[in-house]
C-alpha cells in the first residue's frame, strides 16, 4: 500500500513536471518543472530500493552520481543564464512559448 502511494505520488509529480516544462514560457518555471521530474525519479529510486529490495547500494550509488551530475549540468546552464543577464537583455530569456515551439516558422521556414 505504502509503496503504491509513493509510486503514484511520484508519477503525479512527474506529470506535473512534464506539463510544466512544456506549458510555461518562463525559464525559471521550466527549470522548476525539471526539478519536479528529477525529484520524482529520485523518490522512485529510493522508495523501490528500500521497500522492494531492502536497500541496494547500487541504487543509492546511481542516485548519488547521477543527481550530482544533473545538478552540475543545471548549474552550468543557470550560471550561463545568470552571466548573460545584464541591463538591456533582461527578460530575453523568457521564451514566447514552452520548451518546444510548435510553429510553422521554425518548421518550414519563412
Amino acid at each position: 500500500m505504502n509503496i503504491t502511494f509513493i509510486f503514484l505520488a511520484s508519477s503525479l509529480l512527474f506529470l506535473i513536471g512534464v506539463f510544466g516544462s512544456l506549458f510555461f514560457g518562463s525559464v525559471t518555471k521550466i527549470i522548476i518543472s525539471l526539478q519536479c521530474i528529477l525529484t520524482a525519479a529520485v523518490i522512485n529510486f529510493l522508495g523501490f530500493a528500500q521497500i522492494l529490495y531492502g536497500t541496494s547500494v547500487w541504487a543509492v550509488t546511481f542516485v548519488l552520481i547521477s543527481v550530482i551530475l544533473i545538478f552540475l549540468f543545471q548549474f552550468m546552464i543557470v550560471f550561463y543564464l545568470n552571466s548573460n543577464t545584464y541591463q538591456y537583455q533582461s527578460d530575453g530569456f523568457d521564451f514566447s512559448s514552452g520548451l518546444y515551439y510548435f510553429g510553422i516558422k521554425d518548421w518550414l521556414g519563412e
Binding site: 512527474f14 525519479a41 529520485v42 522512485n44 547521477s66 544533473i70 549540468f73
Partner: peptide
C-alpha cells in the same frame, strides 16, 4: 541574446530528455 537564448532552450530540452531517461531507469528498477 537570441543565439544565447537558443542555446539555453536547446540544452534545457536536452535536460528534459535526459530526465526522461533517468525516470525510465527508476521505473525499470521497480
Amino acid at each position: 541574446n537570441i543565439s544565447a537564448n537558443n542555446i539555453v532552450r536547446f540544452f534545457l530540452a536536452v535536460v528534459f530528455s535526459l530526465l526522461f531517461i533517468f525516470f525510465a531507469i527508476s521505473l525499470l528498477y521497480g
